[in-house]
């Protein structure tokens, strides 16, 4: 069998040597209009588009470091789970009455199963010969409805979330062996005023961790008195002297953490 540069290959004796199988690729020259060679003309354009896309993508990764929260703590009761954004619509769907409780099956199997099943079988549900959207109104309307509801569900779900507070509260704490000095006079003040929300090791519970804080000593003293963000004012109930001890204590733990 002759191929390529005229080499003779030892082939199967039952295949006649001069039978030319469809070795020649389709050239698509039957297409009307201004066709263009894939290699190298069109591929170059594709790759240029790809290069621009890549630059944008790398800018995104540089501008937004990938998030990492604190190490998984199964005993953390105050944590509100939230899936990645592309599962938010399912998460939101399960909040509705008709998709939860006794009707949970509708929520987890019925509606998503119907939607994804229809998507999978679309060619068999929409069998007409016409390809233009106005020739198959039912399929197009169903898709638009599904798309709208997914976008709407995702939006509603994301709207209720205070993303910045979430990120602040779940900052990763370095795996350090910080030892809290419980004999420090500031520790007693901390225990009395802050521990309920900020945790026994300053790791943060319902409030952000105090380890790795970016505030200065003066700012911490001010926040303890006046509050910040969701922290109300006057949580700290002590004398100025105790406040001073507290700030010194928090700063000393932070110095140790560095």
């Amino acid at each position: 069998m002759h191929r390529g540069k005229g080499m003779k290959f030892v082939g199967d004796s039952r295949v006649s040597a001069d039978r030319k199988a469809s070795q020649i690729p389709k050239d698509y020259s039957e297409y009307p209009g201004r066709t263009e060679a894939f290699w190298p003309n069109f591929l170059l354009k594709e790759w240029l588009a790809g290069a621009v896309f890549l630059i944008g993508f790398l800018c995104l990764t540089l501008a937004h470091p990938s998030p990492l929260e604190g190490m998984a703590d199964p005993t953390n009761a105050s944590y509100i789970p939230l899936p990645d954004w592309y599962f938010l619509f399912l998460y939101e769907l399960l909040k509705y009455e008709f998709a939860s409780g006794d009707y949970i099956l509708i929520g987890i199997l019925g509606i998503p199963g119907l939607a994804f099943g229809a998507l999978l079988l679309a060619p068999f549900l929409d069998k007409g010969p016409g390809r233009r959207p106005h020739q198959r109104p039912i399929a197009v309307i169903m898709m638009l409805l599904a798309l709208t509801s997914v976008i709407w569900l995702t939006w509603t779900s994301a709207e209720h979330v205070d993303w910045e507070a979430r990120a602040e509260m779940n900052k990763p704490i370095p795996p350090s062996n910080i030892e809290i000095n419980k004999d420090d006079p500031g520790y007693a003040v901390y225990e009395a005023n802050c521990m309920g929300c900020h945790g026994d090791a300053l790791q943060g519970v319902s409030a952000p961790p105090l380890i790795g804080t970016e505030h200065t000593a003066e700012e911490i003293a001010k926040i303890a008195r006046e509050g910040i963000n969701t922290m109300p004012a006057n949580i700290f109930k002590g004398t100025d002297e105790e406040l001073d001890q507290l700030v010194k204590f928090i700063m000393s733990v932070n110095e140790q953490a560095e």
């Binding site: 191929r3 390529g4 540069k5 080499m7 290959f9 070795q23 690729p25 389709k26 050239d27 698509y28 020259s29 297409y31 009307p32 209009g33 201004r34 066709t35 263009e36 060679a37 894939f38 290699w39 003309n41 069109f42 591929l43 354009k45």
Partner: peptide
């Protein structure tokens, strides 16, 4: 190429025309 005839493999991928309507 003389030994394993690789030209047709990549020609099949590379040599086709791209129609106007997707360009």
């Amino acid at each position: 190429d003389e030994r394993i005839d690789i030209t047709p493999i990549w020609r099949d991928i590379a040599d086709h025309e791209v129609p106007e309507h997707v360009n």
